[in-house]
């Protein structure tokens, strides 16, 4: 019988190895799989390359993972925000590597990785410093930049409902990078607010089909990053 449900967060993350490439969903705190990220801190893997739109806020979630020294390299589009201090400090000290990628290029590189497309041409970034050193090609009189697909060992995403086949729905704009990240990882791990029996999610309403998902773990009341920061929480 196919059953992708795992009993708890440690079981979901047990085999993340040092040096792994990990996609982490979320746009700021929206859709951020905070319990899985904290679980990854507890699990202890080091030297990670993390692909995520931002670099976290305060000292919880992704910022806490970075603060714990587990991340060797960030691949992201917007590595600072009003409340991000952990990444900027390490970056200025030269203790963490950054690959800056335009947001749409980041999403498409991940999607392409999941779709078996090794590279693609995009107009985004052509004629800018972010295209320096990259192959370009003209199509119909316009210059495009070649971008490589991203494939990863793991994806950590937050979803709403999940069943034993791994079918997922998401919560509003918390969906953001979740579906494409599930596609592009060897093992996609989704924390869901609620397990439901197979068949309860209307097939018309499945957002991420279970074929893209490796493990599902139930986290009924996920923490909200901004609320933890307001409470002065510093993880662990």
């Amino acid at each position: 019988m196919m059953d992708k449900r795992v009993p708890d967060v440690p079981a979901a993350l047990a085999d993340v190895q040092d040096g792994a490439m990990v996609l982490i969903g979320g746009f700021g705190e929206s859709g951020s799989p905070i319990e899985l990220i904290h679980g990854l801190i507890d699990q202890g893997a080091r030297g990670l390359t993390v692909v995520s739109n931002n670099t976290g806020n305060g000292e919880v979630g992704l910022a806490a993972l970075i603060k714990a020294g587990r991340v060797a390299k960030m691949v992201c589009s917007y590595p600072r925000s009003s409340n991000s201090k952990v990444f900027p400090e390490l970056y200025r000290k030269g203790e963490i590597e950054l690959e800056l990628v335009p947001q749409g290029t980041l999403a498409e590189r991940i999607r392409a990785g999941g779709a078996g497309v090794p590279a693609f041409y995009t107009p985004t970034g052509a004629g800018t410093v972010l295209a320096e050193g990259k192959e370009t090609r003209d199509f119909d009189g316009r210059t495009y930049v070649m971008e490589r697909a991203i494939r990863a060992d793991f994806a950590l995403v937050r979803a709403e409902l999940g069943d034993r086949f791994g079918n997922l729905t998401f919560n509003k704009a918390g969906r953001n990078f979740g579906p494409v990240m599930c596609m592009a990882a060897k093992t996609a791990i989704a924390q869901v607010r609620r397990f439901v029996p197979a068949g309860e999610i209307d097939p018309e309403h499945v957002v991420t089909p279970g074929i893209f998902v490796g493990r599902v773990v139930e986290v009924p009341e996920p923490a909200q990053e901004s609320a933890l920061i307001e409470q002065g929480v510093s993880y662990p």
Partner: peptide, 26 residues
Amino acid sequence: PDLINAGKKPVTLLPGAAFFHHADSF
């Protein structure tokens, strides 16, 4: 917190609104 704009400010939905993932958005 899951209903925000690109500036990470809270918004509401109007009738006829739709959600989609980042690759579709771009």
